[in-house]
Amino acid sequence: MPRSVAGPEIERLIQLLARVPGLGPRSARRAALHLIKKREQLMAPLAGAFGEVLGKVSTCRVCGNLDVRDPCSVCIDETRDETLLVVVADVSDLWALERAGALNAKYHVLGGTLSPLDGIGPDELNLKTLVARVHGGTVKEVLLALGATVDGQTTAHYVTELLRDCGVKVTRLAHGVPVGGELDYLDEGTLAAAIRARTSF
C-alpha cells in the first residue's frame, strides 16, 4: 500500500475534492496541490465563496432551481412566458438552457431521471409539484428538455402519461445533428434520430 507523504489535513482536502463530479483521485490531488500553492490568490477567496454559498443559497420551492432567494429570480421574473414550462432533470440543465438564451420561459427541475437500477422511482422526483403547477391554469405547453438517454426518455414518457389529462400540449427537444456537426463524426443513434425528426427545407 503506498504511503502518504501529505498530512491528514491535506489528505482530507484531496478526499473531499475527489467526491466532486469530474474529479478522480489524481485530478483531486493535482487540484489540492494547486490550491495549496496559490493559498492567497485561490484558496482563501474560494473558502469565503463556499461559506457564502452555504449560508445563502437554497432550493426554490416553486421550480427547484438554486438561488439566493426563494422563489428564485427565474420564478419571480414577470417578463417570462408563464404559458411555457420547461421541464429539466437537473439545475445544470436549466443553467445550460439559460446560457443558450433561446427561451424566456419558466422551468421545473425534476431532480433527476427515473432509473430503477439506481433506485430512483417517481417518488424520488419532483413530480407532484409539476402536476400541481400544470393544473394551476396558466401553463399551455410543457417542453420536456430531458437527455436523449434511456433514463431521460423513460422519464419523458412517464411525465407525458402523467400530464395526459391536464389539457396542455407536451413537446420535447428535437434530437439529431448538432449545429456545426459533421455526419462522419456522429453516432448511429444520433443520425437515426435526425432522420426521424427531419423537416421541410
Rank of each mutant, 00 (worst) to 15 (best):
R69K: 10
I120K: 05
L97C: 12
L191V: 15
A193Y: 04
T154F: 09
K37P: 00
L144H: 06
V177F: 12
I195W: 10
V57K: 05
A194L: 10
L35D: 08
A193E: 10
V91K: 05
S27G: 15
L144Y: 06
Q153Y: 10
L84W: 06
V134H: 04
I120Y: 00
A89Y: 01
Q153G: 07
P45C: 07
G55F: 09
K38I: 01
A100S: 14
A44M: 13
V91E: 06
T113W: 07
L94R: 04
C63P: 03
V91L: 03
E82F: 08
D67Y: 02
L191I: 15
V5I: 10
A193G: 00
T138G: 00
T113M: 11
T199I: 11
P178L: 05
H135G: 14
G119Q: 07
T160E: 07
L146R: 08
D90C: 07
R39N: 09
R29D: 04
V177C: 03
I14L: 06
K140A: 07
H157D: 09
E11N: 04
L33Y: 15
F201S: 08
E78Y: 01
R164K: 15
H175N: 09
L183W: 10
I14R: 10
L117F: 13
T79N: 07
R172V: 09
Y185P: 02
P178D: 06
L125D: 06
R99Y: 12
V88N: 04
K128E: 13
G24E: 10
T129D: 06
V139N: 01
G137V: 11
A105T: 14
L54N: 12
G180V: 09
Q153A: 13
K106Y: 12
P122G: 00
V150P: 11
D184P: 02
T83G: 05
T171K: 03
Q15H: 13
D67G: 00
E124T: 02
